[in-house]
């Protein structure tokens, strides 16, 4: 299988955006309990806007692999059965939650929602919702591939884990760069996690490569044509050679 380039751009770019948002959210949560120094609302708002930019860019690029992008809205209809449909719902959900998060941080909205008497409760609530939606989006993106059971290389929980870890690693890396520029006190936190996530991603990606190298094929040429003989060779692909999916 050769996924279209636009799909590769989509998953890479939204991974960065999602990871960056998770980085901002975690540092903001830490700052509420005074583990990390708090930053002004505009810091989170601008960071959130960068994350949103990546998601929007990914979404726009993903349209290029569609034969009929003008009908793309229909793709939200089969969420009951299709992980692709679920991903297409999760993506705008994440984008709108990040947009609300940006707005709340930019305007420094706050209220004592839970009676804790601490600042930052609105941002924390919106951030938590956004983070949950982000994890959901990682799950959907991974399951689009992991749910195709015939492609044994993909049909594994490692696929989902890889999307999550690689996306988060790239997002935390970007967060480290952003913090180095805007909030140096947070750089170490982001960079530390970026290293941990990258190493974890290296491990899980290596695990899936090893798994793929040792895969035992469920189907064989014999079961594909139902002829029981040790030696079967395909000599011709049929009329006019291959179709688009064998090229």
């Amino acid at each position: 299988m050769h996924p279209a380039f636009s799909v590769i751009f989509l998953t890479t770019l939204i991974g960065v955006g999602q990871g960056l948002f998770l980085a901002l959210y975690s540092s903001q949560t830490y700052s509420i309990v005074n583990v990390l120094p708090a930053q002004p609302g505009s810091y989170y708002a601008i960071g959130g806007a960068i994350a949103l930019g990546f998601l929007v860019a990914g979404l726009i690029l993903s349209f290029f692999h569609l034969g009929h992008p003008e009908r793309a809205w229909r793709a939200a209809s089969q969420w009951r059965t299709s992980w692709l449909s679920r991903e297409i719902i999760a993506l705008p959900l994440v984008m709108s939650l990040i947009a609300v998060y940006i707005l709340a941080n930019w305007l420094e909205l706050d209220a004592d929602l839970y009676g804790w008497g601490m600042p930052g409760q609105v941002a924390l609530t919106l951030g938590s919702l956004g983070a949950a939606a982000n994890l959901l989006l990682f799950l959907c993106t991974g399951m689009v591939y992991a749910a195709v059971k015939f492609l044994q290389e993909w049909a594994s929980p490692l696929t989902v884990l890889n999307y999550f870890l690689l996306g988060s690693a790239s997002g935390f890396t970007l967060a480290a760069a952003y913090a180095a520029y805007q909030a140096p006190a947070l750089t170490e936190f982001y960079a530390g996690w970026a290293i941990i996530l990258t190493l974890a991603a290296l491990a899980t990606r290596a695990a899936s490569l090893i798994r793929n190298a040792r895969l035992k094929r469920i189907s064989t040429l014999q079961s594909a044509i139902g002829v029981r003989h040790n030696k079967v060779q395909q000599r011709a692909m049929g009329m006019m050679g291959g179709s688009y999916n064998t090229r």
């Binding site: 060779q233 692909m237 049929g238 009329m239 006019m240 050679g241 179709s243």
Partner: peptide, 22 residues
């Protein structure tokens, strides 16, 4: 490219050919 060196296209039905044995 139906008349070219490397023709291809959309076919709903294809007859593949296999060789079985040595």
């Amino acid at each position: 490219n139906p008349y070219g060196a490397d023709p291809t296209g959309t076919f709903f039905n294809r007859v593949q050919t296999y060789e079985v044995g040595e």
